[in-house]
Amino acid sequence: MKIVKIYEDSCVYCHLCEVACIVEHSQSKDIIKAFKRETKPIARCSAEFNYPLSYSVMCRHCDDAPCIEACQTGAMHRDERGYVVVNEDKCVGCWMCIMACPYGVIKKDERREVWGLSTKCDLCPDRETPACVEACPNNALMFEEV
């Protein structure tokens, strides 16, 4: 199974992984429209910085995913590709998955009416190479076998 491997020695902290992630998860998939016209989706990856370190993190798609264990509704589940994803219809925004994830890579989208939505990397189901990997200018993210 391939996941996004993080090569922190090459991360230049440009945030383009986040930009690409936002565009990929937008309605229009158009960079200008996604940022200027739509309600901007939340980036699933986060570029972190603590001089001189920097790297981007996103879900590791754990074998024994604590987030799935913690989820009371079954919204957090493993899809047919073997990746850990959220079923939007089932998520009630209890944030138990956030408590459980050891990497802190699940984000709250509190803009949804009634319940919030747990938001995390879905490894871009519509693409062969995840958007962040393709956008990274310095190969700090690579889509590789675990």
């Binding site: 230049v12 440009c14 945030h15 383009l16 986040e18 930009v19 960079i31 200008i32 940022f35």
Partner: peptide
């Protein structure tokens, strides 16, 4: 300005 999405990549670089 029509193209700038305020991603701030230029600021960081």
């Amino acid at each position: 300005d029509d193209r700038c999405i305020r991603c701030k990549a230029c600021v960081e670089q």
